[in-house]
């Protein structure tokens, strides 16, 4: 056995013994990275973000990772609640020509647009906003995110029943930042933290 191992080493054979860690993207906030398993936003997971009201800093939490993902791939935003301000996005390093804002007319169209984005290899990340989403719809999107290996974020109102997600963050306004509660995550539970911008 020993001889064999030496022979492999001499021949430069690399043996896959250690399991590769799942890919993550750093969030851009060191405190948050420490709380997330693997040290960043996980790939292939539909991250559920619960926001009481739009405009509490929820986008600034995502912009660093979106800027990084938008450099290579495209960003698909499905049904954002307001019009994005180009100057603000540019100031946060979002490549504007890589950003596609989809304005679906119906819930079904929105689901379809998200699923298209999740299965396209050209897309870096899909961000979606839903007023409500059924459990099996959420599961379907979650499955597609896993198959496509995309980063995806889904904003949902705070008061909805919990969805079968693997990573759920509750966001609340905080002075100069946003208070993040990791309501559901892989690994040990962690205490809420305040991410400051």
């Amino acid at each position: 056995m020993r001889v064999l191992a030496d022979a492999w080493e001499r021949a430069g054979v690399r043996r896959g013994t250690a399991q590769a860690a799942p890919a993550v993207m750093p969030t851009g906030f060191a405190d948050l990275d420490r709380c997330l398993e693997g040290g960043g936003w996980p790939v292939g997971i539909l991250t559920e973000l619960r926001v009481g009201r739009a405009g509490i800093g929820e986008m600034r939490l995502l912009l660093p990772v979106l800027a990084a993902l938008g450099r290579e791939g495209r960003l698909i935003w499905v049904a954002p609640p307001y019009r994005p301000c180009a100057l603000a996005l540019a100031a946060h390093d979002i490549a504007l020509d890589h950003l596609v804002v989809v304005r679906p007319r119906t819930h079904r169209e929105a689901l379809w647009a998200v699923s298209q984005g999740l299965s396209s290899p050209a897309v870096g990340a899909v961000v979606s906003w839903f007023a409500d989403i059924r459990e099996q719809e959420f599961r379907a999107l979650q499955r597609q995110a896993a198959e496509g290996g995309r980063w995806s974020f889904c904003f949902l109102p705070r008061e909805l029943a919990p969805k079968p997600s693997r990573l759920r963050l509750l966001l609340e306004p905080a002075p100069k930042g946003v208070r993040v509660t990791l309501a559901r995550k892989a690994g040990r539970p962690v205490a809420p933290l305040i991410v400051t911008f």
Binding site: A86, V100, V102, E109, A113
Partner: peptide, 27 residues
Amino acid sequence: WHEQGFGGLVDRLCARLGRDAVRAVSV
């Protein structure tokens, strides 16, 4: 290299949701 796939994606989105529904943000 993903550019090609992206063109197809935008084409699909436009085809189903209408040209007006697929938007770009610019300065």
